[in-house]
């Protein structure tokens, strides 16, 4: 469909992208062509800074998944890992909140985030989630490090482990609930990419910060996360069709490739040697952390790239059945013919 469309559109002279001159060449150009207004983007890319918002995605995932790992470690008597992960989660969620506030156009109005609770706004839901999760993670960390109030600490640890997975996964909805083609188009797969990436980060942190004798679950989770993330990214790219190239090209492509290698190498290294060598565990854990960060920055960059090129807005919308325009004689349903009707200027 989009190719036929493109062939019909090739003849415009102004305000068109990818125009190809005379008819002789037309059949030789297979790529999807489309019209645009001087090549300008149709939607507006978010003005969010990558450091703040992709960083927020990473830190939120590290904190949220870390709280689950901390609770598991506490339940299974891995005390050092539990404490380390609680401290890591508190640090990560504090930095995440700081990044979020820093990115606001009017940071002093941050409290307005909690002015209403809107289920239609992932950012509103997320703000309330953070408001519930943050204090729980904080109390859990403080109780664990001071050794005071163990019972309250246990309750807080449990609460953080309940809210943690939501903190890790809602950020995918935050990105997907936009008109950004690379994010919205993958709205079914992105939550799994994000939770897998969060699991990778948290298990990486546990490998770095926890003792080797307690690291068996983290190594297990690292391998599972690496496999799940690779599968989810593949599923997302498959769903995205031509938009998937925004995840393979340019900066986003570099970041996604780095993420893949770092995560795979980290998981493999940790699984093979992390049970014996502290050095291997730390190296593997750092690679997992870096891989997770690369995934978030890669997804972010792909979204920006897909918003900045009108191709990714027009071509997918053209290949779904168009419903926006009312009848005319050159209706889009008309079969493509090499010559044209008297009023069809586009193929004269």
């Amino acid at each position: 469909m989009s190719e036929l469309q493109g062939r019909r559109e090739r003849r415009g002279r102004q305000g068109r992208r990818g125009r190809r001159g005379r008819r002789g060449e037309q059949l030789m150009v297979p790529e999807a062509e489309f019209a645009s207004y001087y090549g300008r983007p149709i939607i507006k890319a978010p003005s969010w800074s990558a450091t703040d918002i992709a960083g927020y995605f990473f830190l939120g995932g590290l904190a949220g998944a870390g709280s689950v790992l901390a609770a598991g470690a506490q339940l299974t008597g891995r005390g050092s890992t539990a404490t380390a992960m609680k401290v890591s989660s508190l640090g990560a969620v504090s930095l995440a909140a700081a990044a979020l506030i820093h990115d606001l156009g009017v940071p002093s109005r941050f409290p307005n985030m909690l002015r209403v609770l809107k289920p239609t706004s992932p950012m509103s839901v997320g703000s309330w989630l953070l408001a519930a999760y943050g204090p729980a993670a904080g109390v859990a960390a403080v109780c664990a490090t001071t050794g005071r109030l163990p019972r309250i600490g246990a309750v807080a640890t449990g609460a953080a482990a309940v809210f943690g997975p939501a903190v890790a996964s809602y950020t995918a909805v935050l990105a997907a609930d936009t008109a950004v083609p690379a994010w919205h188009g993958a709205h079914r797969e992105l939550p799994y990419v994000f939770t897998a990436s969060a699991t990778a980060a948290a298990s990486g942190m546990a490998l770095v910060a926890g003792p080797v004798r307690e690291s068996a679950p983290a190594r297990c989770a690292a391998v599972a996360a690496a496999m799940a993330e690779a599968a989810a990214v593949r599923a997302a790219e498959k769903r995205l069709g031509m938009v998937a190239e925004t995840y393979r090209q340019g900066r986003a492509g570099q970041l996604m490739r780095c993420a893949r290698w770092l995560t795979a190498a980290g998981a493999a290294g940790a699984a093979a040697l992390g049970g014996r060598s502290r050095t291997a565990a730390v190296a593997g854990g750092l690679a997992m952390l870096a891989g997770s960060a690369c995934t978030r920055f890669g997804v972010f960059a792909a979204g920006i790239a897909s918003a900045e090129d009108p191709k990714y807005t027009v071509v997918p919308q053209r290949s779904d059945a168009p419903s926006d325009t009312r009848s005319d004689t050159r209706s889009d349903a008309r079969p493509e013919v090499p010559t044209c009707g008297p009023h069809d200027h586009e193929e004269s």
Binding site: K44, P46, G105, V106, R109, N112, V180
Partner: peptide, 9 residues
């Protein structure tokens, strides 16, 4: 408005 910028994309 606190300038979160969510409406933009």
């Amino acid at each position: 408005c606190n300038g979160c910028g969510y409406c933009v994309p």
